[in-house]
Design a protein around this nucleic acid. Structure first.
Lengths: 137, 137
DNA sequence: CAGGATCCGCCACGATACTG
DNA sequence: CAGTATCGTGGCGGATCCTG
């Protein structure tokens, strides 16, 4: 792995160097979940305990039925939430976290923490000039 | 804050309970950055050292000029990369990480690590039934 | 109560052509 | 070399109506 100083063409300097591009696709999927609008919010809402469909919709302001359903199915599919249906009238369905989603949530909370910590710093950066020019004549 | 047992309407159980919704918007921005297609990849690529525009385009397979430019401007705007232009012919511009982006990258690498760790687990979940039904008559 | 089905606007992203 | 400008597209997400 010591191709540092010009043995030839350093074909891939990037992080894609050793990654088999099969795993890359998976990384992307995870990142997409993290980036999408509701997944993390649903997980965070379920952190305190299991909830029913309607409760989730009430506790997550602004989510539509469509998005709640879609998000839950995704999470369920990945094993990030469990869906338990009770055969009653009226019907009752409860969603709950899994150990997997709890471990994910821990990481994400660090990310949230980072965001909170550097909130002001970033806002300041946005009002500042960011390009430095090295004049040379 | 002990509204647990029905003093009235538990207006917000969710994580949006105490968060002033101003900060919520900011959290979302950070999450969007993390979720978008190229930001993290650019940062990861710059981790080993400063790079020029063309180098980035070569080291990040599949990125278009448009997206590279846009991503760099976003990151630059937030203070996650620095842009240094050298007044030479031919022109030379170098992008580099900042302490801020390095700290972000540390968190993100944990996320990548999580993805790698639970890769198989999730793939298995996707082939399994996820809904449990509690029959009751 | 817990969703399914459908229509539609928006915007992230890609491809291409052009410029200082 | 390091971008900008413009056009076209897919799919994410919102709103609304309907069902078991």
């Amino acid at each position: 792995m010591q191709d540092q100083a010009g043995s030839g063409i350093a074909v891939g300097r990037g992080p894609c160097a050793g990654i088999p591009a099969e795993q890359m696709a998976f990384i992307r999927q995870v990142l997409d979940r993290v980036g999408d609008k509701w997944s993390l919010l649903v997980i965070a809402t379920l952190e305190a305990g299991p909830l029913r469909y309607t409760d989730l919709q009430r506790d997550i302001p602004g989510i539509s039925q469509r998005m709640l359903t879609l998000t839950l199915r995704q999470l369920q599919q990945d094993g990030l939430v469990t869906r338990t249906a009770y055969a009653e009238v009226p019907p009752r369905v409860e969603y709950a976290l899994t150990p997997l989603s709890r471990s994910l949530n821990e990481i994400v909370k660090q990310l949230i923490g980072w965001a909170a910590d550097h909130h002001d710093e970033i806002r300041q950066n946005r009002t500042r000039a960011t390009t430095s020019v090295t004049s040379q004549h």
